[in-house]
Computed example of a mutant assay.
Amino acid sequence: MSIDSTRFILLNTSHYGNIGATARAMKTMGFSDLVLVAPRFADALVHEDTVAMASGAADILVRARVVGSLAEALDGISYACATAMTPRDFGPATHAPRPLFAELARSEHRVAFVFGSERFGMANDDVYRCHACISIPTHPDYGSLNLAQAVQLLAYDWRQALGGFEVAPRVPDASLADGAQVQGLLGHWQQALTDIGFLDPAAPKKLMPRLNQLLNRAELSAEEVHILRGIARAIQRRG
């Protein structure tokens, strides 16, 4: 399933910031197809507050479309998910995101997530156009989510269902100290501990072998060996 096979649809959005934050939420999860249905303001996609909240995801706003109805927004979509909190007398079944997404990810559907306005949510007729309702599991005493927060949660779960992204390391893996470096550290410690009277060379017992095992379990990096030898030098200077 390609990235652009998923569409995010915002109905009658009334806050610029939520549009920008939605673009940001989408981009962090690798999605780019955003459609606004009859937003409250004509400049919804270009207003400075929208762009500011997009925080680097302005390219999503540039490609986004504004249409007049949900029917237009669903053009080309084969499976639409409503995000409606209020139960309806009839209509599509309500699902938790993850079980539904696991099934959808194996299908050939082109999926859309439909979000209602901040003030009124989704109208019944809009819910009835959808194939499923999604309910984000929240604490039973308080289930109120900001629009952009809801987009982020569903975008994340949907991305995970599609396979997710690898976590990119922020720093390179540290190089482990080799045996010679560890033995050099042990020798340095042995001398420092002797200098301060902690270790009696005439009766060392099992102290050094135990420290050797401790260091082996720690799997020290070369840099950590340098730090510990620096501590030993400081001990010797004060000894």
Rank of each mutant, 00 (worst) to 15 (best):
Q183I: 03
P209G: 07
L61Y: 05
L207Q: 11
L154F: 06
A192R: 01
T22H: 09
G239I: 03
G68R: 12
M122Q: 15
A44F: 02
Q149N: 14
A23P: 11
A218E: 04
M208S: 07
Y156V: 10
P169C: 05
V225C: 06
H139V: 11
E103M: 04
R170D: 11
F101G: 05
A52S: 15
L34H: 05
Y16S: 07
T83G: 03
G197W: 00
M85H: 06
M53L: 15
P97D: 07
D59C: 12
L154R: 07
R63W: 00
R229T: 14
L215R: 00
A112Q: 09
R217Y: 13
V114Q: 12
T50L: 06
D49Q: 15
L74E: 08
M29K: 05
M26P: 11
P99L: 12
G121V: 11
V171E: 08
P97C: 09
A112F: 04
H188N: 13
L11F: 00
L207Y: 01
L220C: 09
L147I: 08
M1I: 12
R233W: 06
R237A: 13
S14D: 11
S2L: 15
V171R: 14
D173A: 15
L193Y: 03
M122Y: 01
N146S: 07
S69V: 10
L10S: 02
R229D: 04
L186S: 05
R98Q: 14
V171W: 00
A222V: 11
A38M: 06
F120C: 13
G230N: 10
F8L: 11
V46L: 04
D89A: 14
R237H: 05
A23L: 08
I134C: 02
H95C: 10
T94G: 12
L193S: 03
S55F: 13
T22Q: 01
F90Y: 12
A192P: 03
L45R: 13
T13R: 07
I235D: 02
V66K: 14
Q149W: 07
R65H: 09
A132H: 08
I136N: 00
N12M: 03
A73T: 08
L186H: 06
N124P: 04
A232K: 03
L147M: 10
G121S: 03
G121M: 06
K27P: 01
E224M: 04
A42S: 15
A218L: 13
L193A: 09
A102Y: 01
A150E: 10
D195L: 04
G91N: 13
A96T: 10
R237P: 02
Q160F: 12
S32I: 03
L74Q: 13
A102Q: 14
A58L: 00
D125R: 07
A102V: 02
G17T: 12
L70N: 02
F101S: 10
A42W: 04
V51I: 15
L176T: 07
G56R: 03
N124L: 10
P201T: 10
A234M: 02
D173G: 13
A112Y: 07
F31A: 09
M1L: 14
H226W: 00
P99W: 08
R238F: 06
R238M: 09
T94A: 15
H95T: 02
D178A: 12
L220Q: 08
S117M: 05
L214Y: 05
A202V: 02
T28K: 02
S144T: 12
S135F: 01
R159G: 09
